[in-house]
């Protein structure tokens, strides 16, 4: 089973990288952008039947730092 984990900065945590990319988009003339936040995608190949609890534990213990990041788990089947 393929699983995708999307890790993003929590709301309220400054994202200087996102801000720099936002400025660069404005520089290219894309003035419709009001905010940019940069995250990370992690794709896992796991055994069928891997429990949601195990996936969550992977995120809590290693894949995300929950002090600053949120995560979302998507099962791609």
């Amino acid at each position: 089973m393929k699983v995708r984990v999307l890790v993003s900065l929590k709301p309220g945590v400054l994202d200087p990288q996102g801000r720099a990319v936002h400025h660069a988009l404005e520089g290219l003339g894309f003035d419709s952008v009001s905010d940019v936040r940069i995250g990370r995608t992690i794709e896992l190949e796991v055994a069928d039947g891997t429990s949601d609890a195990a996936l969550e534990e992977m995120c809590e213990k290693l894949l995300a730092n929950t002090v600053i990041e949120n995560y979302r788990i998507e099962k791609l089947g």
């Binding site: 400054l14 200087p16 990288q17 720099a20 730092n65 002090v67």
Partner: peptide, 17 residues
């Protein structure tokens, strides 16, 4: 130490990049 949970908080990319 922060990643191990031995100290509070996190260390992020410098604001200046």
């Amino acid at each position: 130490l922060t990643e191990a949970g031995m100290l509070p908080g996190a260390l992020m990319r410098n604001e200046s990049q």
